[in-house]
């Protein structure tokens, strides 16, 4: 894959800049990486905490050659790629929380958001690398590779590993389809089977026990009233 890396100092959001490149028809693989984001984009306009010089904040334009209705599986592939890259670059072994939170020690160390626009996927990945601490409102849910491992890590080495790893998983997905991605995800995630969770749904929180992935990659949840298929929404552990 062509890999053009556009490096920025401080930006509002790498997602916005990458979307601009995509709209201009940039080649797949184009990367926007920033040292700091002042308005890092999360789901539904939420912010991704992007402290200067400590994290890896990037968006990559992808144009996978797969049928359109299979594109959501890319988010699972990106979680796998991010977990692998973190393990290789830092030695930290992460869990994957469906669909694509990357978790270490029960807290989120990387977040992934994918937007489909102008017929391109814009994959945003934020990794908490060398953060020493987090603002109070995030302290209970966020962690960094430094906090988990007790030492600092090279963000450039992590970026190299990450782009290599994304490339590998995207090629696997294009060549072999959904099945191997789902199998690898189920093997890498403790959340796919038998985990008591609550799922944030537009109608409210839904509690249940996870019960595997369906062939599309959606999450089965056994609830008090029956088996529900979760197609979107954040999953949280509950005791």
């Amino acid at each position: 894959m062509t890999r053009r890396i556009h490096r920025y100092g401080t930006v509002d959001s790498t997602m916005r800049i990458a979307a601009g490149y995509a709209a201009l028809g940039c080649p797949p693989g184009t990367v926007v990486v920033a040292n700091e984001q002042t308005a890092g984009t999360g789901r539904f306009g939420r912010r991704w905490h992007s402290e200067k010089g400590t994290g890896l904040y990037l968006s990559q334009v992808l144009r996978p050659d797969v049928p359109g209705d299979r594109l959501p599986v890319v988010t699972l592939a990106l979680a796998l790629a991010t977990g692998d890259a973190i393990a290789r670059a830092s030695g930290v072994i992460c869990d994957l929380r469906w669909p694509n939170d990357v978790v270490a020690g029960g807290r989120k160390c990387a977040g992934i958001l994918v937007q489909l626009q102008d017929r391109a996927l814009i994959a945003g990945i934020g990794i908490n690398v060398n953060h020493a601490a987090f603002p109070e409102e995030l302290a209970g849910s966020a962690t960094s590779l430094r906090i988990v491992s007790g030492r600092e890590h090279s963000r450039d080495a992590l970026l190299d590993e990450l782009l290599e790893s994304i490339d590998t998983y995207m090629r696997l997905f294009e060549a072999e389809g959904t099945e191997p991605i789902l199998r690898l995800f189920a093997a890498a995630s403790s959340y796919v089977q038998g985990r008591r969770v609550v799922v944030e749904q537009p109608q409210g929180m839904l509690a249940g026990v996870t019960d595997g992935l369906d062939p599309v990659g959606f999450l089965w949840l056994r609830t008090e009233t029956g088996r529900e298929l979760i197609v979107s929404g954040g999953v949280r552990p509950c005791s």
């Binding site: 599986v73 988010t75 669909p99 994918v114 937007q115 489909l116 749904q201 537009p202 979107s232």
Partner: peptide, 28 residues
């Protein structure tokens, strides 16, 4: 349309007027 945290922006392909919205917010 969100599917597994893939946010799919649905765009109009034509110029025109919105006659009806057929789905309630937050529904599958």
């Amino acid at each position: 349309i969100e599917s597994m945290k893939l946010m799919n922006e649905i765009e109009s392909e034509v110029s025109g007027v919105v006659l009806r919205k057929l789905v309630e917010n937050g529904r599958p």
